[in-house]
Design a protein around this nucleic acid. Sequence first.
DNA 1: CATTTCCAATTGTCTGACAATTAAAATCTC
DNA 2: GAGATTTTAATTGTCAGACAATTGGAAATG
Lengths: 244, 244
Amino acid sequence: MKIDPNSSADLSVQIASAIKDAIIAGDLIVDERLPSETELTEQFEVSRSTVREALKRLAAQSLIRTQRGATGGAFVNRLSYEDAYAQQITTATLLLSMNAVSFDTACEARYALERACAPLAATRRDADHLATMRAEVFRQNQPGLSDEAFCASDVAFHRALVDSAANPVLSYQLAGAVEAMQPLMNMITFTERDRARIVELHTMIVDALDQGDAEAVTTGLTELEEETRKLSQNAFEKRAAQQR
Amino acid sequence: MKIDPNSSADLSVQIASAIKDAIIAGDLIVDERLPSETELTEQFEVSRSTVREALKRLAAQSLIRTQRGATGGAFVNRLSYEDAYAQQITTATLLLSMNAVSFDTACEARYALERACAPLAATRRDADHLATMRAEVFRQNQPGLSDEAFCASDVAFHRALVDSAANPVLSYQLAGAVEAMQPLMNMITFTERDRARIVELHTMIVDALDQGDAEAVTTGLTELEEETRKLSQNAFEKRAAQQR
DNA sequence: CATTTCCAATTGTCTGACAATTAAAATCTC
DNA sequence: GAGATTTTAATTGTCAGACAATTGGAAATG
């Protein structure tokens, strides 16, 4: 691991990059302890502050974790799903909030992903997933439920649907899309009629899943996508009208 | 933006988090300049090193960029697709290389995603995408092509397929899965017969796309998935045998 | 007006110090 | 000797102050 002091790049960037490469190449394995900051200072021939800034960069990407104390230090992190989730969600949220991606695009991707899960879910769904989904549908049917609670239950329903495909990669990719859409979804007011329609579709989807009918699940999701777009469009128009 | 000096969390983490929240909430807009390090030092009542470590954390996530000089400083970054791609790829590669995700799982997710793109691509594909795909198929048919070059062309083909769905969210999610699989794919030796079969399926897919036949695209992708799994399984077994 | 020089602001790096944390080693108590 | 307590050493976290490098704008110059 070497760095070039004459390069235009900042030293802390170079050091972070060198360590990152070592991790990806497998030279540093999970839970292995990196040299202490003092040792890295000597190895790279830079000051401790520079080493620290490099380590903070890696920590921000969950590549390492640090621990104080006698047996402390920086350790190579096993990238957990939680971390991957969190990163995915942050990135997706930013893309959406900075208008690099429109709501419609995110919505389209989300439902395309969910439809992609349908065939897998139809084969692999187990009683737990179905029970969760039915419980959420039941909750959505309760009168007097707030819009936020309805939304949260909707998310839980879809999460269970995707989880039933039993593919963690799909689960975590979808988490990004769903979470990023959440702030905008929360602005929507669901009328009695909207809710009835959504509950109807949810019921249809969970029934189809129960019977292992992937095609019916796909159909239900497509109709749900239409419904979601219609609702969000209304919400946007209403907000635009208010801001005038 | 306030922090709690008595919290157990590191100050630099708290500060980074506070600034990040401000960015996501829209209190700091794209290209806006953050206060200088000296000003942040006063605002948060911490030392400059602590502020700097916080800023490095944010820079590592591409949330800000820094510039030296008189009019320099830290600026809120417009999260670009390139950045999002890069992050997605790093995360996906790590998940796979640390065995948090199996090759089969990644492969399954990848083809599920591609099939999710099929209906969109069948509607939206334009001449450019089709031309790219046909050019790659042509290249794959050339005798004497190295395995690496064949692999690279395969990636280009699939990228064009997904791009033709014209949904950037799907494009960037797929990039992660494909890139992460790349190192393992490169270990595969493609026999004449394997290549012929793959080219056949690719041709079928691009023809179906040309005709707007989403169902045929989906079928082709499913067969391609089987083929990929078979090949990778062989490669793994061969490697396992060698290591004995 | 164009060019060059200078200046001030800002980030990047360095040095040295002390605080906080933590596990292990040493000590004490019974 | 066993268990509780204290000490110690290693390590990261934070602070303070300094100087270097960079860079755009202001001032001086022709």
